[in-house]
């Protein structure tokens, strides 16, 4: 049985509020709720762990600051809260496909679309999908342009080198991304994006 995306989003909202309000034993209870939810939604523990690992350093740094300014108890509380929120978010994203997610966003925005007599709900949903697909590409493009410039003797050593070097990256990056946007737009148009139903 597949849980509808909207139910998962609603659960995530309620769970997040509960985590932010709860303390002590209640948090332990919420952790139990999270484990049960992950099990019921069929999220794979391995995948959740892989999603959590890159975020761990940030969670630790934030908690360390809490320790400095608010003491160990607050730091521990922050650590547990952020981890719970992050894993809860991961459970929902790991078990929801983009199509389901986009459909839900579109449905939630349908009143706005009807009211304005446009396709705005669908457009926002499509843009969200594109943003998800594009973020890793921008990073990849940035890194390969930087390598190309290093190959021409640009040094990234020191603060001035970094600033000068990044300028040599940003120009091709902007051109590259705008050319790419054109090509993606052509591909989307060719697949009938923008046809009125």
């Amino acid at each position: 049985m597949k849980t509808p995306a909207i139910a998962k989003l609603a659960w995530l909202a309620l769970f997040s509020i509960a985590v932010l309000m709860a303390e002590g034993h209640f948090l332990a209870a919420l952790a139990a709720v999270l484990i049960i939810a992950a099990f019921m939604l069929g999220a794979k523990p391995g995948k959740l762990l892989r999603m959590l690992l890159p975020a761990l350093p940030f969670i630790v740094v934030i908690s360390a600051f809490q320790w400095l300014f608010a003491g160990p108890a607050m730091a521990a509380l922050t650590l547990v809260r952020i981890t719970l929120l992050y894993v809860a978010g991961s459970v929902v994203t790991a078990t929801t496909t983009e199509t389901e997610f986009i459909d839900t966003v579109e449905r939630l925005l349908r009143p706005v679309s009807t009211l304005t007599r446009t396709d705005i709900g669908r457009d926002i949903a499509t843009m969200m999908m594109l943003a998800i697909a594009f973020l890793p590409i921008i990073k990849e493009e940035h890194d390969s342009i930087r390598l190309a410039q290093e190959a021409r003797g640009v040094s990234y050593a020191g603060f001035r080198g970094l600033i000068k070097g990044e300028i040599a990256v940003i120009v091709p990056l902007i051109y590259g991304l705008s050319a790419r946007t054109d090509r993606v737009a052509t591909a989307m148009e060719a697949r009938c994006y923008g046809i009125k139903k």
Binding site: E98, T99, M129, R180, I195
Partner: peptide, 25 residues
């Protein structure tokens, strides 16, 4: 088109394939 990277609009294969049919309703 020529560039394999510029034609995908979604991350998951099946979601990408659904894009065209959705546009034509």
């Amino acid at each position: 088109l020529q560039e394999p990277d510029d034609q995908a609009v979604a991350r998951r294969v099946a979601d990408d394939l659904a894009f065209g049919p959705r546009n034509i309703g």
